[in-house]
């Protein structure tokens, strides 16, 4: 009854989010003194299952034709059946679209409680508490789940992967579930937009250039830099107005309002007009030659230097660190 179940979609593979969920699950199971069960939904993904098997105590692969592609009602049914069997104390999911969609409903079906976007899990005196950011990042709440199981979707990338591993490699069990022919909703078309055109609003990291860049050429350098850290490149109004970068990538009061994890402002002074667009950024950093530039008032860290000197060096250093 102190077991932990983690639910992952096979399609996503063994990405950083999956690693975070597995790590969090392993540690929570340890704290609770229970076993760690992993459920993977969708077409068997050998790499994922092998990786999980090295950490979890049991792995269940729900690979059947109905689940080959995500369908909300079917997947929910499958998860409810599997978790119901396992009767865990906690169910952990990632914060992808599908997990977020299903978690509250799964909790309801299991008679449990759900909470989302967890950034820290606390198991104490038999109760499970979750820390999460609320009020648009202005506060952090600690929430105690009253019902069991505790269904939690995690801000998965914020959790460390497991480092220890389990003593033995678990076997991967294939299941066959009896799924209803649920056709009340059905995904009939899906489209992945290429990352090159990903929405600025969704970007995890944004590198943005301003009037101080002095021309369009510098944006090519920023793009190179962005490639190294998986960032999107954006621009201030002044830069867009000067025609150095397309207006659809303008950030600010009159442009896009973005909420990246990191916003690196290059040669942007930080007029309030601009700051209005990045008030939800979690970390703001700046490269600016002027120590009095208002942008530094909003920064967690920054460097007072000419961007022309910084960018080539930074590219070099980032490339080295990423290896």
């Amino acid at each position: 009854m102190n077991d932990v179940a983690i639910c992952l979609f096979a399609e996503s593979g063994y990405d950083r989010a999956a690693q975070g969920v597995i790590g969090a699950g392993r540690r929570l199971a340890g704290t609770l003194g229970g076993r760690l069960h992993a459920i993977t939904i969708g077409t068997h993904n050998p790499e994922l299952n092998v990786r999980i098997a090295a950490v979890a105590d049991s792995v269940i692969s729900a690979d059947q034709v109905e689940l080959a592609e995500y369908q909300p009602e079917l997947c929910l049914d499958a998860l409810a059946q599997l978790c119901g069997e396992l009767a865990p104390k906690a169910v952990l999911l990632s914060n992808d679209t599908y997990s977020q969609e299903l978690a509250p409903r799964l909790a309801h079906k299991l008679g449990g409680s759900a909470v989302g976007d967890g950034i820290e899990l606390i198991a104490q005196d038999g109760a499970i508490r979750v820390k999460r950011s609320v009020y648009g990042g202005k506060a952090v709440a600690t929430i105690e789940l009253k019902r069991s199981p505790a269904v939690i979707w995690l801000r998965a990338r914020a959790f460390e992967a497991d480092s220890a591993g389990s003593a033995s490699v678990a076997t991967v069990r294939q299941t066959r579930l009896n799924l209803p022919s649920g056709d009340r909703t059905r995904i009939i078309e899906r489209k992945a937009e290429s990352t090159g055109e990903a929405r600025l609003e969704d970007a995890r990291v944004i590198i943005s250039g301003g009037r101080g860049l002095g021309g369009p050429e510098a944006f090519k350098d920023l793009q190179e830099l962005a490639g190294l850290v998986g960032a999107q490149v954006a621009a201030s109004r002044a830069a867009c107005d000067s025609g150095w970068y397309p207006p659809s990538w303008q950030v600010g009061q009159t442009g896009k309002k973005v909420a990246p994890g990191l916003y690196l402002a290059v040669a942007i002074r930080g007029a309030s007009q601009h700051m209005a667009g990045i008030s939800d950024a979690k970390v703001i950093a700046a490269i600016n030659i002027d120590p009095d530039a208002p942008i530094f008032k909003h920064c967690q860290f920054g460097i007072v230097e000419d961007y022309k000197k910084v960018i080539p060096l930074l590219r070099e250093k980032l490339a080295a660190l990423q290896k």
């Binding site: 009061q253 309002k257 309030s272 700051m275 209005a276 667009g277 008030s279 909003h298």
Partner: peptide, 15 residues
Amino acid sequence: TSLESRGHPFRGTQS
């Protein structure tokens, strides 16, 4: 909209 809900016209100001 900002004037309506916040009594000032500067959407998104942190001041």
